[in-house]
Amino acid sequence: MSTTVGNLARASALSIGALALAVMGGPALAWQPTKTVEFIVPAGSGGGADQMARLVDGIVKKYKLMDQPMVVINKSGGAGAEGFLYVKDAKGDPHKIIITLSNLFTTPLATGVPFNWKDLTPVSMLALDQFILWVNADTPYKTAQEYIAAVKKAGPNKMKMGGTGSKQEDQIITVALQKQTGTKFTYVPFKGGGAVNTQLAGKHIDSSVNNPIEGVANWRGGKVRPLCVFDEQRLIYKDKITETMSWSDIPTCKEAGVDVEYLMLRGIFMPGGVTDEQRDFYVQLLKKVRDTPEWKAFMEKGAFNQTALTGDEYKNWVAKAEQVHKDLMKEAGFLAK
């Protein structure tokens, strides 16, 4: 019932908008950007969100999907708070979009910096990023069970788990893992996912929960080994990555007896207070981006979960994800005091 009401309300809003246009005598063309679009990345250059933003930018330019130029701007200060506040403050500005990662939820919860996804307009989910449990290839652990058993045997705080930042997704997964298995890792925070994987390849830490794209180069180079993926089903990509394995050969953590699931949002938001036509322009733009071969190749290389939601579905997903993060972080004691 409520959806019908929502649809009706939206339909009438649309017709009022159309009416307004008709009255003003303007051409009934869809809205288009009239100046440079700023694409904000609330993370440092070289990270997963940055790579994805630059790919989108590259595809938009290559296929000339937009008349106005687009520029990628990194605003990584305060675990992304700098970028989110910048977009929040640009209320009503249709020339700014932002790509999010889990710090959309974790940063305000952990630091108390005043922003919430409800300050923004959800545009479209691009994909969901997976997390994989990795160990160094020289270690004897072939499965997640073996590794967890070894961690238990070593005793609390003996094995080192590396991750990006503090009180963010990597540490949340680590805490969930500990709770599930009754182990205790020493969590070592680093600045970025690439650095974490290099540290693992250099044996400075014992394991990591890197995204596929952060670990794939070292996996192919025979330096690290994936143990399990934190999702309810296996990855769908069947092409061989190493000589013997493809992404789909990695078991889920649940199969391995570690029932932990976590997916990270890679989605696009706009400032609050923009019109539906303005939002729809970007929805269409991103749909075109997702249809290109470059995007598909990127998805496959990074073994992404290609769920892409828009509209209310997307909004509901985000609301649910926020609640999940609230619960997880409350349990872990990560909430700002």
Binding site: T111, V113, K167, F190
Partner: peptide, 10 residues
Amino acid sequence: VGLDTVTGQL
């Protein structure tokens, strides 16, 4: 000044 990477505190 800013966010402390190690603890995630401001």
